[in-house]
């Protein structure tokens, strides 16, 4: 199977058709990253597509042999941050209360025993800073290796591990307060 790097190098060289395969590989994963960090399905769908348009727009800045997934997630974080700023300007930013309403839609999909605990965890996540939320999402929810997470944040792997540990400790405290 052709590697992500090779596909992205082709896109970078002008073969924009190749981005279709990268879209097929990553759109579901990206969509879930946005859902778990924003709690907004509709916005997550738009944000996912925007990431791929931005990959096309900035394709020339991709360096050959650079790992594709960390690069893509750097773009994803910027896209979400821009969306946050634009919503803030327009006064459309959702509150935690609105988020908990949207969570009720997900309740039916969870099993009876775990549904409440998951809901509390989702709510607790919304009280975390963007960076901590992303660290937990990448490392625990998406199971990305520490090296890739470190690349996304431009830090060393050990630094990523320590920050993740502290983020989880904080999440645990928030979760216990809520529950």
């Amino acid at each position: 199977m052709i590697s992500d790097q090779d596909l992205m190098s082709k896109v970078s060289a002008g073969n924009t058709h190749s981005i279709g395969l990268l879209f097929e590989r990553y759109h579901a994963e990206l969509y879930n990253f946005f859902i778990k960090t924003t709690g907004d399905r509709e916005a997550s769908s738009d944000l996912t597509q925007t990431v791929f348009y931005r990959i096309l727009r900035y394709r020339k800045s991709y360096k050959k042999d650079q790992r594709f997934r960390p690069w893509m997630y750097q773009i994803a974080r910027n896209v979400r941050s821009d969306e946050y700023k634009s919503r803030q300007k327009e006064g459309e930013l959702g509150s935690v209360d609105e988020y908990s309403v949207s969570l009720k839609d997900q309740r039916a999909e969870q099993t009876e025993s775990s549904e409440e605990r998951i809901e509390q965890l989702q709510l607790a996540m919304q009280y975390m800073s963007e960076e901590k939320k992303d660290l937990i999402t990448y490392s625990i929810l998406m199971n990305l290796p520490s090296e890739e997470v470190a690349e996304i944040f431009n830090i060393t792997p050990n630094n990523a591990r320590v920050r993740l540990h502290r983020a989880l400790t904080e999440l645990k405290e928030v979760y216990h307060k809520i529950s």
């Binding site: 759109h27 769908s45 999909e109 998951i118 965890l121 625990i140 989880l168």
Partner: peptide, 22 residues
Amino acid sequence: LTDLASSWKNETPPANMRSEFY
């Protein structure tokens, strides 16, 4: 905590996302 977080299910992207993108 990590076991609980791992049980957070993934969702399927909306069906129209693919056609809109292409």
